[in-house]
């Protein structure tokens, strides 16, 4: 079963490797919206996300021969998009891990109430999170990376990833509960 998932769109991928522009376009159509949303959640701006998507697809098609079905094509492509988004944030000097002063604010919300389970409020709350917190919440809860993968993506230790995630989550709950 897992093998089948890994080989999803194999024909399109193989034709794209051979340089077939039509297959490349079909792959692009299948993934562009998902990747655009991944990027916009990371960089926070539509224009920046468009740049990231464009660069990511160009790189993906150029490096497609290095794709060996060790994961799904979507996961492989998403990792490119995430890395490009992180690089974009670094270029813009936006912190990808939270600043220390937020830690002090977190201590004020330690004994918080049960979180409000409202997806619209949560979406709004994530957007209100400081830079760094929104990225780690996105990577863990929405993109589905574990702390080992997040540590690699952000260039931090696994324990830092865990502690930052917990702080971010507390902050998010505090924000959502006020909305």
């Amino acid at each position: 079963m897992e093998t089948n998932i890994i080989y999803t769109h194999k024909k399109l991928v193989e034709n794209s490797k051979a340089g077939d522009r039509n297959s490349q376009y079909q792959l692009y159509e299948l993934y562009v919206n998902a990747m655009f949303n991944v990027s916009i959640r990371m960089v926070g701006s539509k224009e920046d996300a468009e740049d990231v998507i464009q660069e990511s697809f160009i790189e993906a098609f150029r490096k497609l021969n290095s794709f060996r079905y060790e994961s799904t094509f979507g996961s492989w492509l998403k990792r490119i998009v995430i890395n490009k988004s992180i690089n974009h944030l670094k270029l813009k000097k936006i912190p990808i891990t939270p600043l220390d002063h937020y830690e002090y604010q977190i201590s004020e919300v330690t004994n918080q109430e049960a979180p409000v389970l409202d997806i619209n409020k949560i979406k709004k709350g994530i957007k209100l999170l400081p830079d760094g917190y929104s990225q780690i919440i996105t990577l863990y809860l929405i993109e589905g990376y574990d702390h080992i993968e997040i540590s690699e993506i952000l260039g931090i230790t696994i324990s830092t990833s865990k502690s930052q995630y917990h702080r971010a989550k507390k902050k998010l709950i505090a924000i959502v509960n006020t909305l």
Binding site: N33, A34, N37, E50, I53, L117, I119, L141
Partner: peptide
């Protein structure tokens, strides 16, 4: 539950549409 709720509803975060042809 909070985390499970978000993961269950993660599709709802894909709210943006892109101009396919322009980027292609």
């Amino acid at each position: 539950n909070f985390e499970k709720y978000i993961q269950k509803n993660k599709d709802q975060f894909d709210e943006h549409k892109v101009d396919h042809l322009k980027i292609w």
